[in-house]
């Protein structure tokens, strides 16, 4: 067999374009005091500071809308772990976003029960309604634990259902206008199934 081409870059040596990221020191990140305080309070609640990784990432996401690299570094500096560790954790979970997303979040269930009751169509309706609107993140989601109100959606972390496709538009308008979203479809208000007269 002929000689393999020697990787030319090697003989000269490669130079990384960016620096590696170890545990950042607090003075190297500009961690907003309230974020630092929140995370430090959380650390006090658990026997081991590593336990706060999810709550700390939630705090980062609440502050920045998603888990920004800078936010992850800030949390990492307070927790004294590598940002890589937190990114690894964040990327494991569906609710933590390591890419930019709109700050209003709509998750439409497309799992078995919702699918049977029109979940796919509802997702399409939400997507269409969100078209061209800013600061919105619409996504299909696995079972949200509300098959009783299928087809359903979680809108800014509150559950609504059963929804008609026509209601997607209304919901998004209300959401962006800062109004109460579909008050009559809120899970909050639903009686126990056995007590309803439907």
């Amino acid at each position: 067999m002929a000689d393999f081409p020697v990787d030319q870059a090697v003989s000269e040596g490669r130079v990384p374009e960016r620096s590696p990221e170890l545990v950042p020191e607090l003075h190297e990140v500009e961690c907003p005091p309230e974020l630092r305080e929140q995370i430090e309070t959380l650390i006090g609640r658990y026997p081991d500071r590593h336990s706060v990784s999810i709550p700390a990432l939630w705090a980062v996401q609440r502050l920045y809308g998603w888990c920004t690299p800078e936010g992850i570094r800030q949390a990492a500096a307070v927790m004294r772990v590598t940002p890589a560790y937190l990114e690894s954790v964040a990327s494991f979970y569906d609710l933590l976003h390591t890419e930019p997303v709109g700050s209003h979040k709509v998750a439409v269930c497309t799992n078995i029960s919702c699918w049977m009751r029109g979940g796919d169509e509802l997702l399409d309706a939400f997507r269409a309604a969100a078209e061209g609107r800013e600061d919105l993140f619409v996504t299909g989601f696995e079972c949200l634990g509300a098959c009783d109100i299928a087809p359903m959606a979680s809108i800014d972390e509150r559950y609504f259902g059963p929804l008609e496709t026509a209601e997607a538009h209304t919901a998004i308008d209300q959401l962006l206008a800062g109004e109460n979203v579909l008050p009559e479809k809120s899970l909050e208000k639903r009686p126990l199934a056995g007590d309803s007269d439907a």
Binding site: R45, Y46, D48, H50, S51, V52, S53, I54, P55, L57, W58, S88, V89, A90, F92, Y93, D94, L95, L96, E142
Partner: peptide
């Protein structure tokens, strides 16, 4: 007693994955 919110992963319901998640690791 601490209420610990997960972040969206069915596997965390498996008891040992739950423990890893609670320890701050991937579930």
């Amino acid at each position: 007693l601490v209420v610990h919110r997960g972040a969206g992963a069915y596997i965390c319901g498996e008891e040992t994955a739950l423990l890893d998640a609670l320890e701050g690791k991937r579930g």
